[in-house]
């Protein structure tokens, strides 16, 4: 069952990279959000990746030595940035404090864009791996023809 299990590993990588991209896009979209439900400006979020076993109940019967070693990946937590917001002097802004400063999120769009490229590249690499494994499974099936 090793090859089908490998698909799970690649799928976990795709899911993790997608989650990362979603959080990055959220940061970018809220780069100038000064008002949130919790009060104050938007706070940037970051995903934390963690290696994890891809346990499939079906495959447990066919466990091999490799299965414990080849781990997938998962998002273990989403960390909210707690650093001080960026204060900009905008006296006319509705959210300005008494001194005329507005608290803006501590989001650097350039940094998030570069990270987004990394997420996209990682996703693509997992797709390539899955495609190669799928091809191997297909070749095994073709042995019966």
């Amino acid at each position: 069952m090793s090859l089908f299990n490998s698909l799970d590993v690649s799928a976990s990588g795709m899911a993790a990279q997608r989650a990362r991209a979603e959080v990055l896009v959220e940061n970018l979209a809220n780069a100038d959000t000064t008002r949130t439900a919790e009060g104050g400006p938007y706070r940037r979020k970051d995903v934390v990746f963690e290696s994890s076993a891809t346990a499939s109940p079906f495959s447990s019967v066919f466990q091999s030595a490799i299965d414990g070693q080849a781990t997938g990946v998962q998002v273990s937590q989403i960390v909210t940035d707690s650093s001080a917001p960026v204060m900009r002097y905008m006296p006319g802004h509705p959210d300005a404090d008494k001194d005329g400063f507005v608290a803006f999120p501590h989001v650097n769009p350039a940094e998030d864009m570069v990270d987004l490229m990394g997420a996209s590249r990682g996703y693509g690499a997992n797709v390539a791996a899955m495609s190669a494994i799928k091809d191997m499974i297909q070749r095994s099936i073709d042995l019966f023809r």
Binding site: S10, G13, A70, V73, N126
Partner: peptide
Amino acid sequence: QKLVAANIAN
């Protein structure tokens, strides 16, 4: 190949 897939995922 499974190990390679795991390396790429991680």
